[in-house]
């Protein structure tokens, strides 16, 4: 300890203190401040650049997402349009079918009606013919039968019976 204290030179201590103070002052002013500022600037520049790159990437992603969305929307629209078209087509077909059906039923009905009419007309004619025929037959029968009185009565009786029953 004594040797150590003997070695200690107060003069050197003071000189060193002054020199170190001067050195720290000079270095801080002319070296460390500009160096550290530049380093910080550079680092923040790098950070900003990285952040910008990240942003650009995100934007890109967003754009891509937008694109995808647009494509999807377009596709949906197309689908909708096609569906609508199909619906219209179906509807038209259905309507056409309906109309056709209506027309045919009308036609059929008309046909049936005319058939019925024709039938009735035919029946009426047939009836008329049959009546004429029967009258003719009856005339000839009557002409032949009226020679016999008894038979005449019988006939009348029979016809009357039929008439009332009819």
């Amino acid at each position: 300890m004594e040797a150590l204290l003997n070695d200690f030179s107060p003069g050197l201590f003071i000189v060193q203190t002054i020199l170190l103070l001067a050195l720290i002052g000079l270095m801080v002013k002319f070296a460390w401040k500009p160096i550290l500022n530049s380093l910080n600037e550079r680092e923040s520049g790098i950070e900003d650049a990285l952040a910008a790159a990240e942003n650009a990437r995100k934007e890109m992603q967003n754009l891509q997402a937008d694109n995808a969305k647009l494509v999807k929307e377009a596709r949906a629209e197309r689908d909708a349009m096609m569906k609508e078209a199909r619906d219209i087509r179906d509807k038209m077909i259905a309507e056409a079918k309906e109309d056709a059906k209506e027309v045919t039923t009308k036609l059929i009905e008309n046909a049936q009606a005319s058939i019925v009419q024709e039938k009735q007309a035919a029946l009426a004619e047939i009836k008329k013919n049959v009546a004429e025929l029967s009258i003719g037959i009856a005339e000839s029968v009557i002409k032949k039968e009226l020679s016999n009185k008894k038979d005449q009565l019988k006939l009348v009786e029979g016809i009357l019976k039929d008439v009332t029953l009819n």
């Binding site: 070695d7 200690f8 030179s9 050197l12 201590f13 060193q16 203190t17």
Partner: peptide, 11 residues
Amino acid sequence: QIAVTAALAIF
């Protein structure tokens, strides 16, 4: 030199 290191330490 102990004076030099002493000055540094005292700083």
